[in-house]
């Protein structure tokens, strides 16, 4: 009974984390599912978003502007990966790894900007007591407008609405076609290189925005806050798909299912932590969960091929 109570007690926190990571998962969905590219930039761009946001807020900049700056920084990171891939012909995975690596150095520098005593910094604290933060885990139990869940939910809804609109436009459709069949896309006059770059830009912008939210939520940005982010993002996407792909067919709902996947992921994490696992064990657990969920559809297709529909990229449809 105590155990159950303490678990329930920690659920709002899980929901907050899940909502912020949900924005990140939507970014991963855009590359992994819509564009059909595994983009590893995100581990770096999440931290970049956190670093830029924390830096600006600590300098007294309005938090909305700080988040906008984080979004733009993430888009720039996506642009770099896109250029490595399309302009330099480097495979997508490697392009992402290169940017991610470069961002490690850049993020250390960003967090030290304006600090005369250090050239690099591996973390930057922003306290809700001293700075104006939009979302803070400290307020997670308050029944006021300060509760971060409210703003996080609104932001998630706004992100989904904008993306739903965008992927219904001519340019968004071209992007989906590029991911679905790049041969067909080129034959229909679509510049597939540009589509890929655009997808990476949008995706990493969202990931950095999630980093900005997380930095405020937990009260600091750290250099390794994005470590393994791609796997958490994938976990959220896949959990959402496995549980909801049967009912959620509309594109907006598919994006929502990534967010729900992220919330469930954090609820489960909270549970296993209560059961006695260490936080440092979580990466192992996450990796195993993702491996299992990626294996299931493959084995199903291989050994029970009649039972499954060609579901792999079904979710690419808008509307």
């Amino acid at each position: 009974m105590d155990f159950l109570l303490s678990f329930l007690n920690s659920l709002p926190g899980a929901a907050g984390q899940g909502l912020a990571w949900g924005v990140m998962a939507i970014g991963v969905y855009i590359t992994y599912r819509v564009l059909d590219v595994a983009d590893l930039t995100v581990d770096g761009s999440l931290a970049t978003g956190g670093a830029v946001c924390a830096l600006l807020i600590s300098m007294g900049v309005n938090p909305w502007i700080a988040m906008l700056a984080a979004l733009l920084a993430g888009m720039l990171a996506g642009l770099a990966t896109g250029m490595f891939h399309t302009l330099c012909g480097i495979p997508a995975i490697l392009s992402g790894i290169l940017t991610q690596l470069a961002l490690y150095s850049i993020n250390l520098r960003i967090m030290a900007i304006g600090d005369a005593s250090a050239k690099t910094k591996s973390s930057l604290a922003i306290s809700v007591d001293r700075h104006s933060l939009l979302v803070s885990s400290r307020n997670i139990r308050k029944l006021t407008l300060e509760n971060p869940l409210l703003l996080l939910a609104l932001l998630v809804a706004a992100v989904i609405a904008v993306l739903y609109w965008f992927f219904g436009t001519e340019q968004g459709s071209a992007l989906r076609a590029t991911g679905s069949n790049s041969n067909m896309a080129r034959a229909q006059g679509i510049n597939t290189d540009r589509s890929k770059v655009l997808g990476l830009v949008v995706s990493n912008g969202l990931v950095a925005l999630a980093g900005a939210l997380l930095a405020q939520y937990q009260g600091s940005s750290t250099i390794d806050m994005g470590r393994g982010a791609i796997v958490i993002g994938l976990a959220a996407v896949i959990i959402g798909e496995v549980l909801l792909s049967g009912v959620f067919r509309n594109f907006a709902l598919k994006l929502l299912s990534c967010v729900i996947g992220a919330i469930i992921y954090y609820a489960v994490i909270t549970l296993v932590l209560r059961l006695g696992l260490e936080t440092t064990d979580l990466k192992l657990l996450t990796a195993l969960v993702v491996a299992v969920f990626l294996t299931i559809p493959y084995w199903k297709g291989k050994y029970f091929s009649k039972a499954v529909k060609p579901a792999r990229k079904e979710e690419n449809t808008h509307a």
């Binding site: 989906r176 067909m184 079904e314 509307a319």
Partner: peptide, 15 residues
């Protein structure tokens, strides 16, 4: 090769 399998008939035509 000529169509986007994960998109609708009308979406393919619109492209």
């Amino acid at each position: 090769m000529g169509t986007a399998a994960t998109m609708q008939i009308e979406e393919n035509m619109a492209l």
